[in-house]
């Protein structure tokens, strides 16, 4: 992936109760982390890009061919399924009537070649260590396992049918830290092989550093700063170190 390619340009204004979201940013790095405390508007930003929130005003342009997803002035609003964007949101659900394999396969559904699709699904299941669970139903899995399947399904979907931006909202919430760290690294490598850009939401400093990623820090609906993680989250890291030292 060329470092200078723009994956997404977004300007979003949206009123959400007491919070007025007013953000503008560009995604140029393979993996960008949207970082901020809860209630800062992170999830709304993600949902606006995914097409599940209609911003009061703004413009969102995505992909190499600069497809306009939202332009409130020109009354453009592309529905979610037609966007070059794949989402594993916070409220995402596994389909309860499908096995784990079929759930992941549903994500990869756009690929018409069934053999290619099967290989991709196997690869993703392997990557997430879900092979032994492939034929089980969602209700047979633990919360952490289901969380992994959600991310696996979205990842499989993102690499199918052209170039998509993958949106992950707190993707490894509730996962054991060691498991999370391993998975994040593997997923990071795998997705960069597919040249699939990611925007993930977190409030966890460790996660942002682990990805060594570009960070957009937002607070109270505004972008505070954007840049490499070591610069943007230097204060947070120092505070964390201090806590560890004194803890």
């Amino acid at each position: 992936m060329s470092e200078n390619a723009t994956h997404l340009r977004a300007k979003i204004r949206h009123r959400l109760g007491a919070l007025v979201l007013d953000v503008g940013f560009e995604l140029t790095q393979p993996w960008t982390v949207l970082f901020g405390p809860s209630g800062s508007g992170k999830t709304t930003v993600l949902r606006a890009i995914g097409g599940f929130v209609r911003p009061d005003a703004g413009r969102i342009v995505a992909g190499l061919n600069q497809m306009t997803l939202v332009d409130t002035d020109a009354r453009v609003f592309v529905p979610p399924h037609e966007r070059p964007v794949r989402t594993a949101g916070q409220a995402a659900r596994l389909f309860p009537h499908m096995t784990i394999r079929r759930n992941v396969s549903f994500g990869a559904g756009g690929d018409s070649d069934p053999e290619k699709r099967r290989r991709l699904v196997d690869e993703v299941l392997e990557l997430f260590c879900l092979r032994p669970l492939a034929e089980r139903m969602p209700h047979d899995l633990s919360g952490g396992e289901r969380q992994k399947v959600l991310v696996a399904r979205a990842a499989a979907s993102a690499v199918t049918e052209g170039k998509n931006l993958l949106l992950l909202d707190e993707p490894f919430n509730g996962l054991d830290l060691r498991v999370r760290d391993e998975l994040l690294e593997e997923l990071h490598q795998w997705l960069s092989r597919w040249k699939t850009p990611v925007l993930s939401v977190t409030h966890d400093v460790g996660e942002a550093f682990l990805l060594g990623a570009e960070v957009i820090k937002i607070a109270e609906g505004r972008v505070v700063r954007q840049g490499p993680v070591a610069t943007v989250l230097a204060d947070e890291r120092a505070r964390l170190m201090e806590q560890l030292a004194h803890g």
């Binding site: 097409g51 599940f52 659900r93 549903f106 559904g109 979907s157 998509n164």
Partner: peptide
């Protein structure tokens, strides 16, 4: 039918038609 299923399906690029036949109707 929980709207979250429909949203999850659309978030994976499935058309409303596919969502209806593969997700809503089986549920």
């Amino acid at each position: 039918v929980d709207g979250d299923y429909v949203e999850a399906s659309a978030g994976l690029g499935a058309s409303p038609w596919r969502t209806f036949w593969s997700v809503v109707l089986p549920l």
